[in-house]
Amino acid sequence: MDLPFSPLIRARILCLLLGAIGGGVFYLVHLPLPWMMGAMTFTTIAAVSRIPISMMPRVRMVFVTILGIMLGSAFTPQMLDHLQYWAISFLWLGLYVVVTTYLVRQYYIRFAGYDEVTAYFAAAPGGLSEMILAGSAFGGDEARISLAHGARILVAVFVLSFGYRWLGGYTPTSANAAANLDPISYSDFLWLAGAGVAGFFGARLLRMPAYALVGPMIASAGLHVAGITASRPPAELVAIAQIVVGSMIGARFAGLPLRLVLRGIVLATGATGILLLVAVGFGLAVDATAKMPFSSALLAFSPGGLAEMSLIALALGVDAAYVSSHHVVRIFMIVVAAPLAFRLLRRKG
């Protein structure tokens, strides 16, 4: 007997169900970052196998908002003493964006045969939805730009999760480092909920990129830096957020031909390899000049999505405030600068 839901609702329920099953399987076999990796793997396989699954933008937005509150709770008053080192790291980040955009753009032109517009907006490391909109507005191939960014996130999550686990010795036992294991008081719950709501709607009103995460993170960080509250969301939400975010990564490939997805993943593997190699170099530079650990700097400069890289930082116990703030700044840089830079480059031929 069929469930009394529309096909779209069934596809969304199936997507989350497969994500939860995948996360559980990866957890049982002790793979790194199991809940997000498992959800991402199972839903990606389902998507390219033509199993009807669908994204849930509103559900993802809810958990991304909760993730923003979690990330804000990683900020402490003591971090104010390190802002001068963060400023140096942000300068390196700006150079990283310029270098990697140029290198990956050349890669997509020469090895993938993309046109100049599509290659440029596929190469800009971040702001998936913004780059798709801007690229299509300038005449780029929207499908290729979307696939390039979606596959880049997929490959980056796999490489970094396994790399930190097997090469860096990081284990997910510290996944609750930025979450609360004890019950939250009623007053602290109201503070955190208020930060989430105010941050969400305030950032949306200001049209900030990634407003569902950035706004709540800024509001929550303000509360924690001011010492108003030291509480954090429950630890179980970390695992649930990983399942939701991982499931949405896989669901991005639903409806696309298998051949197109596989080619996109192959091309994204090469592009991500370039981005990660450059990130290693910049991570070493930050380690030497800004007194930030290489493990934190590499994750801060890595070419994944804001929510995905922040979840990896939370799960592995890496400095989540440092990592997430750099990805927020990177997105702002790209969203503001990429279209302007493209106009200038095109005028100069």
Rank of each mutant, 00 (worst) to 15 (best):
G215K: 00
P57K: 07
V104F: 03
T229L: 01
F42V: 10
I132Q: 04
L298C: 15
G273Q: 07
A313V: 02
S161Q: 05
S295P: 15
V62R: 01
L93F: 06
C15R: 05
L160H: 04
R346L: 06
I132F: 04
G126C: 14
T65E: 08
I9S: 06
T76F: 11
R165Y: 15
A297L: 14
S325E: 00
A271K: 05
I21V: 08
A156H: 05
T272I: 12
G270L: 09
Y107A: 06
Y107W: 08
M309D: 01
L8Y: 07
F138R: 05
L314W: 10
L33I: 13
C15E: 08
I240E: 13
I153T: 03
T41N: 15
L192K: 08
L67P: 06
F111K: 13
G281S: 15
A39I: 11
G281H: 15
T118H: 00
I51L: 07
L181D: 15
A313E: 01
G250F: 02
L167I: 12
V64C: 02
G38K: 09
G113N: 00
L160I: 09
L256Y: 15
L213M: 05
S89G: 12
A321R: 01
Y170F: 15
I13Y: 04
L267D: 03
A123P: 07
A239E: 14
A300W: 07
A193K: 12
L311M: 13
A279S: 12
I45S: 05
L128D: 07
L147Q: 03
C15T: 09
R10G: 02
I9F: 09
F162A: 09
I228T: 09
R58A: 05
R259G: 12
G168H: 09
Y164E: 10
T101W: 04
G305R: 03
G135K: 00
A337V: 07
G19E: 05
R232I: 03
A203H: 00
A226G: 10
G168V: 10
I249D: 01
F121G: 02
S161A: 11
R207S: 03
G168N: 14
F26G: 08
K348F: 12
L262Q: 04
V336C: 10
V29Q: 13
F90L: 10
Y85K: 13
T171C: 12
V318H: 08
L316G: 05
Y211L: 03
I265L: 07
R259F: 11
A137P: 04
L67T: 13
G38P: 11
F121V: 05
W92K: 12
G281E: 14
H327D: 00
